[in-house]
């Protein structure tokens, strides 16, 4: 009984904090999503389900939602493909000073503002920008790359922004794998690929899952990167939601779209949880 009181008193500040910073704003948005108009000034507002209905009435909302999920999946996949080998090398092949220096390089981009990072990408990618100029200098006659304002440009910017999450979470779980385990496998004749896929990947799965979740969720709602790098191709559900809040002042619809997105994200995560559990 005493122990329970101790646990409660230790946990309660964290829960109080969560209630204040997450639950309250979120419930305010939930409240908005059922209103017919923004309750500011002398407007008449009433309860309605219309905002949720709009999503199902107009096909383009779900098309854009699908497009955002596709973007989330692709960015996560690229981050995994690039980040996992990087984390493996950092943990098992590199040591000492080099490791520290490499870690610094990975974390360094985090010290700059996300907006600044994306703006620098626009300078690199745009017509006659840094990338096009250097490639044409090295290989004259390559001509324009036409990367700016395309889907690949958005992918590039997002993968660059979110890669450190994947490297760091994978590194932590790979580093926890006992080297003797790998030596034992090797001594019993397991090949490199067998060790990778039967030992390291399953044992590093918590890190992979954590990294994927950390990347997948924010990328689905991203709006700044698609706007700046995507041009005409930069419309996603995130930019549509942003439009509702800043450009057209339809907070109820923006809130409803956000909650639909949140519900779908939860469904995707639930769908993946049995796979994760089986590996454990």
């Amino acid at each position: 009984m005493n122990q329970r009181a101790a646990v409660l008193s230790l946990i309660s500040p964290a829960y109080l904090w969560l209630t204040l910073t997450i639950l309250l704003p979120l419930s305010a948005m939930l409240y908005y999503s059922f209103l017919s108009d923004v309750p500011i000034g002398n407007r008449e507002v009433s309860w309605t389900l219309e905002n949720y209905g709009t999503f199902f009435e107009k096909a383009f909302y779900s098309e854009l939602m699908l497009r955002s999920f596709k973007l989330g999946a692709e960015v996560t996949a690229f981050c995994l493909l690039l980040g996992f080998p990087c984390a493996l090398a950092l943990s098992k092949s590199i040591g000492g000073r080099t490791k520290e220096a490499l870690f610094l390089l990975i974390i360094l981009p985090f010290w700059s503002n996300a907006l600044v990072r994306i703006f620098s990408w626009t300078m690199v990618l745009r017509g006659n920008g840094i990338l096009e100029y250097s490639i044409n200098w090295l290989l004259p006659g390559t001509g324009p790359l036409g990367l700016m304002f395309t889907y690949p440009a958005i992918l590039l910017g997002l993968v660059h922004s979110y890669l450190p999450y994947m490297i760091l979470t994978c590194y932590i779980s790979i580093d926890a794998i006992d080297n003797q385990l790998l030596e034992a496998a090797r001594s019993m004749g397991a090949g490199k690929l067998t060790i990778l896929f039967r030992l390291i990947v399953p044992l590093a799965l918590p890190g992979i899952v954590a990294g994927s979740v950390l990347i997948f969720i924010p990328v689905i709602g991203s709006f700044m990167e698609p706007r700046l790098l995507g041009g005409r191709n930069g419309t996603f559900i995130g930019t549509i939601i942003e439009d509702q809040f800043t450009a057209v002042f339809n907070w109820p619809l923006g809130a409803a779209l956000s909650f639909i997105m949140m519900g779908l994200v939860l469904l995707v995560l639930l769908g993946f949880s049995p796979i994760v559990r089986r590996f454990k």
Binding site: K58, F60, E63, Y151, N233, T235
Partner: peptide, 17 residues
């Protein structure tokens, strides 16, 4: 205005490759 806003967002969705 609402009709116009929705028309434009639908058009922007149509613009995606």
């Amino acid at each position: 205005r609402e009709e116009i806003v929705e028309l434009w967002q639908e058009t922007k969705a149509y613009f995606q490759n």
